[in-house]
Design a binder for these strands. Structure first.
Lengths: 189, 189
DNA sequence: AATTTTAACTAACGATTGTTAGTTGTTCTT
DNA sequence: AAGAACAACTAACAATCGTTAGTTAAAATT
């Protein structure tokens, strides 16, 4: 996970700053200053500010797509699949909390890869929805508002990047199981 | 809810644009163009871009604070209080989905009122947390991870602004009750 | 009818933006 | 030891930013 090339260092630094103020409010001079160099020097390693953003976002989006594909092909129960989705989010997010902020808040500033990102996101949501609808048919899940279920889970999982950094004693598997428990079985006794 | 003064029109327009691209990526010229006037003309009605942002955010934050205070003083059961919190979010959000985007994503660009906003938010979260902890003591709620419960509810409620505009046949009380049901009793049969 | 107020305009400002060009010193490869 | 590759630098660019000053026409008030 440690950046190996200078380009990776720039991307990692940028993600930290993008999380704090958002893509548009961070200047190339901000990024450079944080690294102790001049803005122009960044261009020895990257070709544009856009390239930094798309590197952050697309690689994360593809991790989610890849993980969802594996879950879809796993032939587990609907509830198991939902548990794996929670684990997937906890795992990806805990490895890159900074980048997840950009994925959530700055995707609209993508240019060339905006369409590609939107397709990945739509497919992901449709797969998620399908698992829930299947669970209702199976009678594993309540016959209730499927969209509300999807929305509640997705909102919580997408916000993980805000919560995870505050849990310093990070036990990701306990976090995932606590969260699954709340999301799937609710909070009422 | 319709803007009455020209200043309110500017704020309403700005909220729409801020939701699309974020505060930093929206220029005064963007706002003006959307209204069919020139950027300089905006300054006949507002004193700065900052003032627009703080008008959007602070009024919403104060609505949440006011609503939470009423719930705290209502002497209802913990579960009733949680249901009222869901209603509070659905109600405020459905009346100003655009502004809620700024509240969630652009609060860090506040200047003079940043500290005040952070205090309101912290107090709100602490009141929310207290209701959940009380519910656990009461044995109304499961004796499980209270922070996970808080996080899950708050994440979902804060993301409502993304979801609500897509529900065109907006029955807010059904929405609130469906959402409460999912959040409180879970999704497993 | 005279006057004030409202709300638009043109023009421009100094600062900041992402980026390019060209240069220099250091480190790796041969 | 010589040459290539790497990674920093200074200087500057055209564009755009939020904002101010001063002006003008229409609407509201007196």
């Amino acid at each position: 996970m440690k950046p190996k090339t200078r380009k990776e260092e720039i991307i990692k630094t940028s993600a930290i700053l993008f999380k704090e103020k958002g893509f548009s409010a961070v200047t190339m001079r901000d990024i450079a200053k944080f690294m102790g160099i001049k803005a122009a020097s960044l261009y020895n390693h990257i070709s544009s500010k856009q390239e930094i953003l798309s590197n952050i976002i697309i690689s994360l989006a593809e991790q989610f797509t890849y993980g969802m594909d594996k879950i879809q092909n796993s032939h587990k129960s609907s509830i198991d699949k939902l548990n794996y989705i929670v684990e997937l989010h906890v795992s990806i997010t805990s490895n890159n909390t900074d980048g997840m902020a950009s994925l959530n808040n700055d995707w609209m500033h993508l240019k060339d890869e905006l369409e590609y990102y939107l397709k990945l996101r739509l497919d992901y949501e449709e797969n998620f929805r399908h698992i829930i609808e299947q669970g209702i048919k199976n009678e594993e899940l309540k016959n209730a508002n499927a969209e509300a279920m999807l929305f509640s889970m997705l909102s919580t999982l997408r916000s993980l990047y805000i919560w995870i950094p505050n849990k310093d004693d990070l036990n990701t598997s306990k976090l995932a199981s606590d969260l699954s428990h709340v999301l799937l079985t609710g909070i009422i006794k």
